[in-house]
Lab assay of single mutants.
Amino acid sequence: GRPPQPKSVEDLLDRINLKEHMPTFLFNGYEDLDTFKLLEEEDLDELNIRDPEHRAVLLTAVELLQEYDSN
């Protein structure tokens, strides 16, 4: 089946190999997954995450988090 739900933002970023963005998220108040899963493209602009590939991966991760919630 699906991988288990990540336990933290750090756990999530670790899985998608984008842990380099951890300080950015923490500094901007994305300390838990409840906050993280509200992330949208405009937020990525504000966080200055410009890499299109990173953005795509992050937004996909957000969608997956929302799916875990609805099940």
Rank of each mutant, 00 (worst) to 15 (best):
1 G>I: 13
1 G>F: 14
1 G>M: 13
1 G>L: 13
2 R>H: 09
2 R>E: 05
2 R>A: 07
2 R>P: 05
2 R>N: 14
3 P>V: 13
3 P>T: 12
4 P>D: 15
4 P>S: 12
4 P>G: 13
4 P>I: 13
4 P>T: 14
4 P>A: 13
5 Q>F: 14
5 Q>L: 09
5 Q>P: 10
5 Q>V: 11
6 P>Q: 04
6 P>L: 08
8 S>Q: 06
8 S>F: 00
8 S>A: 01
10 E>T: 06
10 E>D: 06
10 E>G: 08
10 E>W: 07
12 L>S: 04
13 L>Q: 08
15 R>Q: 12
16 I>C: 12
17 N>V: 02
17 N>C: 07
17 N>P: 00
17 N>T: 02
17 N>M: 06
18 L>V: 04
18 L>M: 14
18 L>A: 03
18 L>I: 04
18 L>E: 03
18 L>H: 04
19 K>A: 12
19 K>I: 12
20 E>Y: 02
20 E>I: 10
20 E>A: 04
20 E>W: 01
20 E>V: 10
21 H>Y: 15
21 H>N: 04
21 H>M: 12
21 H>P: 03
22 M>D: 04
22 M>N: 07
22 M>G: 09
22 M>K: 10
23 P>F: 08
24 T>G: 04
24 T>P: 01
24 T>D: 05
26 L>E: 11
26 L>P: 02
26 L>Q: 11
26 L>T: 10
27 F>S: 15
27 F>G: 14
27 F>C: 15
27 F>K: 15
27 F>H: 15
27 F>V: 15
27 F>P: 05
29 G>D: 02
29 G>T: 01
29 G>M: 04
29 G>W: 00
29 G>Y: 01
30 Y>P: 03
31 E>W: 10
32 D>A: 06
32 D>Y: 03
32 D>W: 04
32 D>S: 14
32 D>T: 14
33 L>A: 01
33 L>Q: 04
33 L>P: 01
33 L>W: 00
34 D>L: 05
35 T>R: 14
36 F>R: 03
36 F>A: 04
37 K>T: 05
37 K>F: 00
37 K>L: 06
38 L>S: 13
38 L>F: 10
38 L>K: 14
39 L>P: 02
40 E>W: 00
40 E>Q: 15
41 E>R: 07
41 E>Y: 02
42 E>M: 07
42 E>T: 13
42 E>P: 11
43 D>R: 08
43 D>G: 08
45 D>E: 10
45 D>H: 06
45 D>M: 10
45 D>N: 10
45 D>C: 08
45 D>P: 02
46 E>T: 15
48 N>D: 13
48 N>I: 00
48 N>R: 09
49 I>A: 00
49 I>R: 02
50 R>Q: 13
50 R>P: 06
51 D>S: 07
51 D>H: 08
51 D>M: 02
52 P>N: 06
52 P>S: 09
52 P>H: 07
52 P>C: 06
53 E>F: 05
53 E>P: 01
53 E>A: 12
53 E>K: 11
53 E>G: 10
53 E>W: 06
54 H>N: 05
54 H>R: 02
54 H>V: 11
55 R>F: 01
55 R>E: 06
56 A>M: 10
56 A>C: 10
56 A>Q: 14
57 V>T: 15
57 V>A: 15
57 V>S: 15
57 V>D: 14
57 V>Y: 06
58 L>G: 05
58 L>T: 04
59 L>Q: 07
60 T>I: 00
60 T>Q: 15
61 A>F: 03
61 A>S: 10
61 A>N: 07
61 A>H: 07
61 A>G: 06
61 A>Y: 05
61 A>E: 14
62 V>M: 05
62 V>F: 01
62 V>K: 13
63 E>D: 12
63 E>M: 07
63 E>F: 01
64 L>W: 14
64 L>A: 15
65 L>I: 08
65 L>N: 02
65 L>F: 04
65 L>V: 08
66 Q>N: 14
67 E>I: 07
67 E>T: 12
68 Y>A: 15
68 Y>H: 14
68 Y>V: 12
68 Y>G: 14
69 D>H: 09
69 D>W: 03
69 D>C: 07
70 S>Y: 09
71 N>L: 13
71 N>D: 15
71 N>Y: 11
